[in-house]
Design a protein around this nucleic acid. Structure first.
Lengths: 154, 154
DNA sequence: TATTGTTATACTCTATAACTATA
DNA sequence: TATAGTTATAGAGTATAACAATA
């Protein structure tokens, strides 16, 4: 029986054993964008995780460390060093939470907001340059599909 | 002037500061798929990089270590431990290259081919289950867009 | 009992530089 | 000079377990 239907990439066996796997392609693509991020942010700039944590603190002022960790899906214990770094840079402040003496609320400083706006603009500009050969629709589709993957596990 | 045109996600500022970045979404998506990979491959199974290296050796028998490193875009030095591991598992053999005594050609063993076929099937089955809510077209589009990112830097 | 922040620890991944033996 | 494989080393990133203070 002859094959009449067009075969989709995901069903095509063995063009290369690896190319058909989403995981492999995700990793390779991430490395390209990650390198671009580092170029955008510069030598002593924020690490990706510090950037994300700062973004979260600005978006949700007074959020606790545990809540940031849950939001970013990283470990509570791993967040300590990140917040230490942000605090030493003067971008974020740990403050007591009235009514719960266990928790530390995080507040962005004025410097923190300024630094984030700058970093964000730099990263945005770099991503825009990186994706200059993508149409708006392709980029939207990509973000949408990546989001759909994330939501599988929620 | 009123905005008549629909705004694309990538141009929408500040839904969340992070959600608009491809890099952040790529990383989150990768973590989901990576966890699935580890479940597929089991406790003492091949690490992602060993899996990729073995795939490459099977696809290009007698390929040298340096060529594998270039193909996977990883460092030559990092490949040594991966090949050590594959060799200790009896999945790959280092063999001399006639005419160039510097190089080591890599050959898959019978066990290596068998183990890879098994691992590949397991990972494929897991990815298929993970992406059960994706249409074939969505998956193709995703692979295609991820490939387009990879090709930016080539 | 459960949760928050923290420390300690270890393990993976990766980047860099240097070495050796070849070419 | 350049390349192949290797070693050593250090730095991220991350996962786990435990602990004190508090809920």
């Amino acid at each position: 029986m002859a094959r009449a239907q067009k075969t989709s990439i995901s069903e095509t066996p063995d063009i290369s054993a690896l190319e058909g796997f989403v995981g492999y392609n995700l990793k390779r693509a991430y490395l390209v964008v990650y390198e671009d991020f580092r170029n955008a942010i510069g030598q002593d700039g924020l690490a990706p995780r510090a950037f994300s944590a700062l973004a979260t603190v600005i978006q949700y002022p007074s959020i606790t460390q545990s809540a940031v960790a849950r939001h970013l899906q990283i470990e509570r214990s791993g967040l300590v060093a990140i917040v230490d770094d942000l605090e030493q840079r003067g971008l974020v402040q740990r403050t007591p939470v009235p009514g719960d003496r266990r928790a530390q609320a995080l507040l962005p400083t004025a410097d923190g907001k300024r630094a984030f706006a700058e970093a964000r603009a730099a990263v945005k500009a770099h991503e825009d340059a990186l994706f200059k050969n993508f149409t708006d629709q392709e980029r939207d589709t990509l973000l949408c599909l990546l989001n759909k993957i994330r939501k599988i596990e929620d």
